[in-house]
């Protein structure tokens, strides 16, 4: 296979009669930041959810670090993995949701420590020490014992990012991480993500923040109607788009 950290090939996905992904090919190299842009309903989120197998694809395949997601190859057959094995594969992929989805009944630090303890079976003391380091990294160490509802949206999303990182994932997927935030809170979350990118974390980010794409992305991908219309370095895609569809979209959001 290729040296790509994330390798998406010929992926199709339908919800009933709705054909959401129509043959997606995407490769993301280790340490790179890929930003996915596109109008709503273009399949961006579904693509992201297919990568960590929250959605099962109808055709094509996804592999992360050379490992096929959701299937095991034996000779020329693919065996579907059981839920337990899929859950194990997912621990290599961090996922940050639009609505944070922090566990409401657990404190910030318990949210971060949950999966490393229960899914990766790492020792509690080690996990908690690392969770504190992560909270410091996102600037929220003093909020360790606080419940999500006592945090602002921006703070919740930063805890959610720390939670995703606690699994020491090979890649982190961001599904519109700032879309549910008040405008003045967007900045703090983008700052945290910028730090991650500088630290060499492999990231795929679905967002509407063109400024972030321009500044941080190694590759910008533009999707429309279930297809990748155009992809390349930010300067190319954002400043000199080749396709009318991309141009039309950018003229509306810029």
């Amino acid at each position: 296979m290729s040296a790509a950290m994330v390798d998406v090939r010929g992926v199709h996905k339908s919800f009933g009669a709705l054909h959401v992904l129509r043959g997606i090919d995407l490769r993301v190299r280790a340490g790179e930041v890929t930003v996915v842009l596109g109008p709503s309903g273009s399949g961006k989120s579904t693509l992201l959810r297919s990568i960590n197998h929250l959605e099962r694809v109808d055709r094509g395949y996804v592999s992360v670090d050379g490992q096929l997601m959701g299937y095991r190859r034996a000779g020329n057959r693919l065996h579907e993995l059981k839920e337990r094995q899929i859950l194990k594969q997912r621990t290599q992929i961090g996922f940050v949701f639009q609505n944070f989805n922090l566990f409401a009944h657990l404190t910030a630090i318990e949210n971060i420590a949950e999966a490393p303890i229960s899914a990766q079976r790492r020792p509690r003391s080690e996990v908690y020490a690392e969770a504190e380091t992560l909270l410091r990294r996102v600037g929220l160490l003093e909020k360790a014992q606080v419940y999500p509802r006592q945090l602002s949206g921006g703070q919740q999303q930063r805890v959610a990012i720390a939670r995703a990182l606690a699994l020491r994932p090979k890649v982190v997927l961001f599904d519109e991480p700032t879309s549910a935030l008040d405008p003045e809170l967007v900045g703090e979350v983008l700052d945290t993500m910028r730090d991650l990118a500088r630290g060499g974390t492999t990231m795929i980010v679905v967002t509407h923040e063109i400024g972030f794409a321009r500044e941080v992305a190694d590759t910008v991908v533009f999707m429309d109607a279930g297809r990748i219309v155009e992809q390349g370095p930010p300067d190319e895609v954002l400043n000199h788009p080749q396709h009318d569809r991309t141009r039309a979209f950018l003229s509306k959001v810029l």
């Binding site: 929250l54 337990r84 859950l87 194990k88 997912r90 996922f95 989805n101 999966a115 229960s118 899914a119």
Partner: peptide, 27 residues
């Protein structure tokens, strides 16, 4: 319980039984 809670647990790879006991039932 909000569907997002289960989805987050699944995305984090939390084992199924633990998703019910630790995440869903307490809420």
């Amino acid at each position: 319980v909000d569907q997002g809670q289960l989805e987050a647990a699944a995305a984090l790879g939390v084992p199924r039984g633990r998703q019910i006991r630790r995440i869903v039932l307490p809420q």
